[in-house]
Amino acid sequence: MNGQIVSVNLGESKVSTDPSVTMVCFGLGSCVGLAAYDPQARVAGLTHVVLPASVEDRPTHGGNGAGPAPGRFADTAVPHLIAAMEAKGASRRRLSVRLAGGAQMLAFAGSGPMWEIGQRNVAAVHQALAAAGLSPAAEDVGGNSGRTLRLAVDGGRVTVSVVGRGEHEL
């Protein structure tokens, strides 16, 4: 994949129609990268989900009052990404969705909800997709390894790379 690399960082969602762009979620651990593509409108979207739920997991203190980015939580990231893609001409009926991430990087370090955040993120993304009438065409989730997810706007090819295991198409 050549051309311009656009990094999608923690809690961010980005949409592009520029065929020279490859959008990337680098180093997904417990976070989930959700790549969506409309092959007819040639609109691509990528979001980097950090936590499952905007109500349960949002900060309860501090902050600047502006509220966290919608891409940070699965339940707000999915509808936000779909709406942003539709605004660029995509149709949700045509969206092909692929997921990667949701690992437990620090296995055995502890137990409890925050240590199982990867599993919870994947489940929450599935739930949000179902609520939008979508289901993933492919996914590479869980386990104990970090992943990098790439989405090429030109053609919507999605790849996942893992340390020591190279890159594969999703």
Binding site: G27, G29, G146
Partner: peptide, 21 residues
């Protein structure tokens, strides 16, 4: 653990409940 730096650091941060700006 040996893995992608970003995957480890972000997971450590989130597991500690750090979800502020």
């Amino acid at each position: 653990v040996t893995d992608m730096a970003g995957a480890i650091l972000a997971s450590a941060l989130v597991s500690g409940g750090n979800v502020e700006e």
